[in-house]
């Protein structure tokens, strides 16, 4: 479904990605873990076209994404809940959610999806008329995820969805991730919380300074020495 081949992405002279190859098959949850600055966010941005690969190709369902503009890429069925939430601060919760569905051709199916998001996050329903900038950090995180779900994407990119959430909400978010995956959405999940991510994912990639150093089934990664020492903090 998604295939990155030898992708190099730069910010000016900074080499953020130094030849990334990874793939995501339909129906999977794939997680990308790694230390701060490893290039996880850059990988997602390169897929969505908000950062551009200097070498290599990004393919999605037969389309070569690195030649398309971001709005075209989104219309192919990719949505993202970005790092740092990136809520539109001076628009209401409802408007933020509506914008999530901006590129959808099936306008009629939007209302039921709005209900679905409000059922998943009742807090958002209570605050639907409030502006995004006045929400708490955790509420903004729910809104960012809800907004991405409003696109009803084939592939959902999640960049640290558990960031800033209380432990109970983290559990809820991961349960929701599994639910929407079962309902047919393929997910590429970037997480600091490696343990949780590897528990819900089918497969995982480990990144270090712009390269992928390890990839395997999630259960195998949970047992690997490198992951246990470096990312799970075990001795």
């Amino acid at each position: 479904m998604l295939e990155l081949t030898d992708v190099h992405t730069y910010y000016g002279n900074i080499r953020a990605l130094r030849g990334i190859s990874l793939s995501v098959a339909p129906g999977e949850i794939v997680t990308l873990i790694g230390a701060n600055g490893a290039g996880k966010t850059t990988t997602l941005r390169t897929i969505l076209g908000t950062a551009r690969a200097r070498h290599g190709t990004v393919r999605f369902n037969g389309h070569q994404l690195d030649t398309l503009t971001t709005d075209r890429i989104v219309r192919l069925g990719i949505a993202q809940s970005p790092e740092g939430r990136r809520i539109f601060p001076r628009m209401t919760v409802l408007e933020n959610l509506e914008l999530g569905a901006f590129a959808r051709p099936d306008r009629a199916a939007i209302a039921p999806d709005l209900d679905r998001v409000f059922t998943l996050f009742p807090r958002l329903s209570e605050r639907s008329a409030q502006t995004g900038g006045t929400l708490s950090g955790g509420e903004q995180q729910m809104l960012a995820i809800g907004r991405a779900l409003m696109a009803r994407p084939a592939l959902l990119l999640l960049d640290e969805p558990s960031m800033g959430l209380s432990p109970i909400l983290v559990d809820t978010i991961f349960r929701i991730i599994q639910d929407i995956n079962r309902q047919g959405t393929t997910i590429l999940l970037v997480e600091q919380n490696a343990r949780m991510a590897l528990r819900v994912a089918h497969r995982g990639y480990v990144m270090q300074t712009g390269r992928i150093v390890l990839h395997d089934a999630a259960a195998a990664l949970l047992r690997s020495d490198l992951v246990r020492k470096t990312y799970l903090g075990e001795k």
Binding site: L48, G49, T50, T69, T70, D71, V74, R75, A79, Q80, P82, R86, F88, P89, R90, M91, E95, E98, L99, G100, F102, A103, R147, A151
Partner: peptide, 23 residues
């Protein structure tokens, strides 16, 4: 819808693009 797209672009251009808005 397009008016909202305009406000969104003014508030956060990259995220507006990620919503599928043709900036």
């Amino acid at each position: 819808t397009w008016g909202k797209a305009m406000r969104a672009t003014a508030q956060d251009r990259e995220t507006a693009e990620a919503m599928g808005i043709n900036v």
